[in-house]
Nucleic acid binder design. Sequence first.
DNA 1: CTGAAAGCGCTTACAG
DNA 2: CTGAAAGCGCTTACAG
Lengths: 331, 331
Amino acid sequence: MSSLEEVARRVGVSTATVSRALSGRGRVSEATRARVRAVADDMGYVVSASASSLASGRTRSIGVLVPLMEQWFFATVISGIAHRLSADGYDITLYNVTGDPAQRRRLFDESLRRRRVDGLIALSTELDAADARELRDLELPVVGLGTPRTDVPALRVDDVAVARTATEHLIGLGHRRIAHIGLDRPDLGAFDVPTLRWRGFHEALADAGLRPASLAPADCSLDAGHRAAMHLLGADDPPTAVFATSDEVAFGTLFAARRLGLRVPEDLSLIGVDGHEMAEFFDLSTVAQFPHRQGERAADAILSLVETGTLPTDLTLPHRLIPRGSTVPPR
Amino acid sequence: MSSLEEVARRVGVSTATVSRALSGRGRVSEATRARVRAVADDMGYVVSASASSLASGRTRSIGVLVPLMEQWFFATVISGIAHRLSADGYDITLYNVTGDPAQRRRLFDESLRRRRVDGLIALSTELDAADARELRDLELPVVGLGTPRTDVPALRVDDVAVARTATEHLIGLGHRRIAHIGLDRPDLGAFDVPTLRWRGFHEALADAGLRPASLAPADCSLDAGHRAAMHLLGADDPPTAVFATSDEVAFGTLFAARRLGLRVPEDLSLIGVDGHEMAEFFDLSTVAQFPHRQGERAADAILSLVETGTLPTDLTLPHRLIPRGSTVPPR
DNA sequence: CTGAAAGCGCTTACAG
DNA sequence: CTGAAAGCGCTTACAG
């Protein structure tokens, strides 16, 4: 015997009424609703997710596509998403997207087709036109966060402005030989985060009549930052200031500087991006972007899309310069 | 019309046969199976998660209870879990457990009762007898990881041994005034991780005929470690060595030492626990415990419990001393 | 090896 | 406001 049926029997109403009373959809008299609630609570009854999903077509679960969940930034975004979703009674299903194309195919062709989620948040995941079409065919709403500009709507910080802010901070302090550790030789037609930061860096320098001292390639990890910085700072005539594309890259740069006997900020000014919790301890200047809040905003957006079919009007994410001891005028 | 029905119609067999062919359960001739597969692939057909779950009682999803997912340690464990689960076609549902008792009640009384998952991995979450009973009533298999000793089976590192290893390393170097930054005044009846590490620390000192120089309280975060260390190291007659209960606490200690003008390792030897990626850059000695692998092991265990009803025989997790530059003999 | 049919536990038009 | 009943899309004994 189904439990809903048991509740109905005990209260003396139909299963339809119990369903309405418990879900809040459809009209039920206040008295009936109260009795149903009381009996259900007493029995410890909760609707079965799969039965409810099958009948209603809604799962009350949101999927999150995430590339590197060990990184502080993504872990913090996910925490923000979870915080907001659980407040609305939604579950969160994690899909770890690796670089492996076969795994990615399986994700799109199988996992998402199983319809276990009502909507999707894609974190820094590149969705090409085919992906976007597939999601549209599945009628699966998506919201991106830090995704390159594609056909799917996305929340974004203005990464060009972020990079300009950081770079102009260094210029304003009097630096003239400024290097970037982030993306090298970007595809100028691209709109991914590292490319946009590269662009902002170049624009700020150009506006000031400066040319980049050098550009060291690195992805966003500590390790890559460290390697790039060892290379950059170990060369002849190193820059007096570095704009790192993330705080983790900046940490790597810090370790490299220390190993090379360069002092920060005396010999080298350094600024990152993110507002990493450890940046404060390193006394690292940064452009903060509040990832926990970003997660909440992304959750708001996907819930709005799933429940009302509309997106919040403002999809812009804030950022803020936080100057600390790692950036000073050059000697 | 249901899609399974559509596949059946196209192949010219019953839906029962399609179901068997696609799931691999029950006998189907190889020829039939191949035709069904081909048509299903061609149509892009994938079973509906909710329909399949409702009919079979299995969700192919595992829930993960996690207290602090922003922390590197937990994020890395989850990544290991996800890696292993996705290889077996299982989804992962994240349940963020906060300190809020109401949220915790909701988790047990509602979320888990919805039966959206086949099993549960509890990360460092204290499950009391009532929780364990509730899970048993729900017939929801659980495996703990880093959970205090309770009624639920759990994978564990031997935390007493971990702490002994770290402490004996310091003693072996010749230190006599050794402090612990971790738990202060533990409940000696408890078996949670910080308490066990506290115990190992004390045992190692006692065996060497030493007494703890001091004990500074801290939870496992960078911030708490920093605060505790400022207090401990700023006092008269500071210790010559510190055993920090985690690498993040050790980082906080490192920042505190720097702020107080103490040099590591010249003025202070320092060792942590975890094997944090950043420990290498800080040249921090540590007792590594391989969280990614822990996640995989936990996933293995819950899958085994869900699918065969048995646990792997060995639930012990390894650890290993990694001596680095932060620990040297005292002056 | 395969099919007919019941059933998993809900939700939701439809009718009153 | 409430109920009878169909239906959501599968799985699985049962029978052959």
